[in-house]
Write a protein that binds this DNA or RNA. Structure first.
Length: 691
DNA sequence: GCAGTCGGCTTTTTT
DNA sequence: AGCCGACTGC
């Protein structure tokens, strides 16, 4: 059942192997079979490491390999994302390089907050040195913590010199190089004192471990396989280097046409440099697509043919043509777009018998789906949304986790701050004082120090219960579920004080408790929540839902019907990406990934009018510009369009200013579709109120 | 001096 | 849902 190219990958021996796998070429199946074949040849499955980049890809791969291995009664313990494997290894062996095995994991918002705090002195210093603020109000202030966080993370992932990083991400802050350097150093000191590792630290620490003198004693893996290699960065390549010192049983699978994580420091160079880095390397292609109709692949091929760089490739459909070309639907507004998609999905579901789980709507960024979500709710179509804000990013979940973290790692400044700030009358200043007091005492005396803190009057009523909650956490034999139960009992009154819609949040936290019951220790529970498990994945009724997903989260997935939103300038390509050419090419690859998710039917939507609410309740209407990716050559392969024949429509003629459709001379920037505050808020109220 | 609340404005993508 | 500035109250 495997074709000749696939069999070659499965049969390949022990040398390093690079598989260039086109979209839909069955790479997950092939990886699973190769893993099984290696085990069949005597590899200990406990010493096989399977690495992916995203949790969804990890879950999918795990499921497939496990399915093959279960027949042989085998288990595969080491499969996951780079980050999750790093956490497991560092919990066990991090002590060898000076890492507290009880370290906290700082997720993105944690590190953003801590970095913001660490940078405060720099921001203040600057404010003090430049008091006269002439014409420009806050045009050019000290970067906000979100920008700091992106700069820092990009540097840690690319390991480029700071000036280069600033030039690429935030060139306006070039003059602050030294201040930024000091802020980052202060952040690193705070992290260290907190016994906390952020996402980037996890990868760095793993590589440090592999480069340490203890590496030889920690040869845990006899074979390594990596999925989506085009999305790895040099740091991850360094980890592979360390993993494969003594052997070359390294299989790497990737497709340069699907590289969509450059913004995180991933580089296509990794896959291009692989043959040199791990020489000698065998290179095997997978070129037959088993997913899509030839009509869909023709359109994807045409899109890729216009990329400014990359391996030329043409996908060929094993299924052949299906007799249905992809469609471009031009719609008047975003609202019409939402209605059109809802109608199309209803027709497919109820008249053509295509189940909802076989249909998906994909979009560039999470907020682009807001209007669609409303339309779907109105039509009572159940959906599951992937991408954008995650479960663990919601305030109430972070709060509950903070209490558990305080107990697991008493040095955790971020967690203590969060926990203390929930108490009435306690703000940033008091929380900071409490943290300082805690840091000055050894963890054994935690209970005493806690009891000795001078709470403001308003917080006094919560004092007893707080102490009780921590006692319950420390009780012998307290497992994850018991710990969380104690925390929630204490936390619910605070939750009700702090947030809107407390009932929904409480329900969500009760769900969390069901999840906690699956774990023995609180630490395993927290680790999985942050770096492994996706609670949405196994939501009940998952199978009966339509999928809404960011394109990033859709990678590796497939559906019979795929709808793609907002094929307009500012939508796809997205607004912020239009400034430099490299980012535009990443947007093109995103569209390529999105299009190649479809098996039978692919529909792109292009609204022509952008409606934004203005202050006072009015609506401003402005024309959208069609996405530059829909060139005449691409559109010739689509049905539909403004007058039913895409290629002939004057809207898509080259620009009169001589730019044409060449990417390098594309028309000037136009801002993208954005839900204005008013619209966004209205939507939220509606959503919350209706749920 | 500190905490808390309200109104107005803005949100790429993932671990 | 966060951020910022403005304002209120202890």
């Amino acid at each position: 059942m495997l074709n000749a190219q696939q069999q070659a990958v499965v049969a390949h021996g022990d040398g390093a192997l690079l598989v260039i796998a086109g979209a839909g070429s069955g790479k997950t199946t092939v990886m699973a079979h190769r893993a099984a074949a290696l085990i069949g040849r005597g590899l200990d499955p406990g010493r096989l490491l399977l690495l992916t980049f995203t949790r969804r890809a990890a879950n999918e791969l795990k499921r497939r390999v496990a399915g093959l291995l279960r027949d042989q009664g085998l288990d595969l313990p080491w499969a996951g994302t780079f980050h999750s494997v790093a956490v497991r290894l560092l919990r066990r062996h991090g002590g060898l390089i000076g890492i507290d095995p009880g370290f906290s994991i700082l997720d993105e918002s944690d590190s953003r907050d801590l970095l913001g705090l660490a940078a405060e002195p720099e921001a203040e210093r600057e404010a003090a040195e430049t008091p006269p603020n002439p014409a420009a109000p806050d045009q050019d202030g000290f970067p906000p913590k979100g920008v700091l966080c992106r700069l820092y993370s990009y540097q840690r992932n690319t390991e480029l010199p700071l000036p280069e990083v600033i030039a690429r991400i935030a060139p306006t802050h070039a003059k602050r190089q030294e201040a930024l350097q000091r802020a980052f150093a202060a952040y690193e000191a705070r992290k260290k004192a907190s016994h906390g590792l952020d996402f980037d630290d996890l990868l760095h620490a793993w590589r440090d471990l592999l480069r340490s003198p203890h590496a030889a004693a920690l040869e845990l893996f006899d074979a390594v396989m990596v999925d989506e290699y085009q999305d790895t960065n040099t740091l991850q390549a360094g980890i592979l280097d360390g993993l494969c010192r003594r052997h070359r049983r390294l299989t790497v699978v990737g497709d340069d046409a699907q590289a969509i994580y450059a913004f995180r420091g991933a580089t296509v160079e990794n896959i291009l440099a692989f043959p040199d880095q791990f020489a000698p390397v065998s290179l095997l292609p997978l070129e037959t697509n088993y997913r899509s109709s030839q009509e869909i692949l023709d359109a994807a091929n045409a899109l890729w043919a216009e990329a400014t760089r990359g391996y030329r490739k043409r996908l060929t459909a094993a299924r052949g043509p299906l007799g249905e070309r992809p469609r471009l639907e031009t719609v008047e507004t975003d609202w019409r777009q939402a209605e059109a998609i809802t109608a199309a999905i209803e027709i497919a579901c109820y008249r053509e018998g295509v189940p909802l789980r076989e249909q998906a709507v994909l979009f560039r960024s999470s907020h682009q789906a807001f209007r669609l979500e409303m339309a779907l709710q109105k039509a009572r179509i159940p959906y599951q949304k992937y991408g954008g804000q995650r479960f663990t990013d919601t305030a109430h979940v972070k709060d509950a986790m903070a209490f558990l973290r305080c107990h697991e790692n008493p040095h955790d400044e971020t967690a203590w701050r969060r926990a203390f700030s929930l108490l009435p009358g306690v703000g940033p200043a008091s929380a900071g004082r409490f943290v300082t007091a805690l840091a000055a005492t050894p963890p054994e005396q935690l209970a005493d120090t806690l009891a000795g803190l001078r709470f403001p009057a308003k917080a006094q009523p919560f004092r007893e219960d707080l102490l009780k909650a921590f006692q319950a956490l420390a009780a012998p034999g307290a497992d994850a579920a018991a710990g969380l139960a104690a925390v929630l009992e204490f936390y619910f009154p605070l939750l009700r004080r702090h947030y809107d819609q407390p009932a929904e949040r409480e329900t969500a936290l009760r769900e969390l408790q069901v999840l906690a019951a699956r774990y023995h220790t609180t630490r395993e529970f927290l680790d999985d929540l942050l770096v492994n498990h996706d609670p949405d994945e196994d939501a009940p009724g998952h199978d009966g839902h339509l999928t809404l997903s960011t394109i990033h989260s859709a990678k590796g997935c497939e559906w019979r019907h795929v709808h793609i939103l907002n094929l307009v300038e500012g939508g796809l390509p997205s607004g912020p990406s239009q400034e430099d050419g490299g980012q535009i090419e990443e947007e093109r690859r995103l569209l390529y990934v999105a299009m190649t998710r479809a098996k039978d039917r692919l529909v792109l939507y292009q609204p022509s009018i952008r409606e934004t609410a203005v202050a006072g309740g009015g609506v401003k209407r402005a024309p959208y510009k069609p996405s530059r990716f829909l060139s005449p050559a691409v559109l010739a392969l689509f049905d539909g369009g403004p007058d039913g024949s895409c290629a002939a429509d004057p809207v898509y003629e080259p620009e009169p200013d001589g730019g044409g459709w060449e990417i390098r001379s594309s028309p000037p920037v136009e801002t993208g579709p954005r839900a204005t505050s008013r619209q966004a808020r209205r939507r939220r109220e509606w959503r919350w109120g209706d749920e």
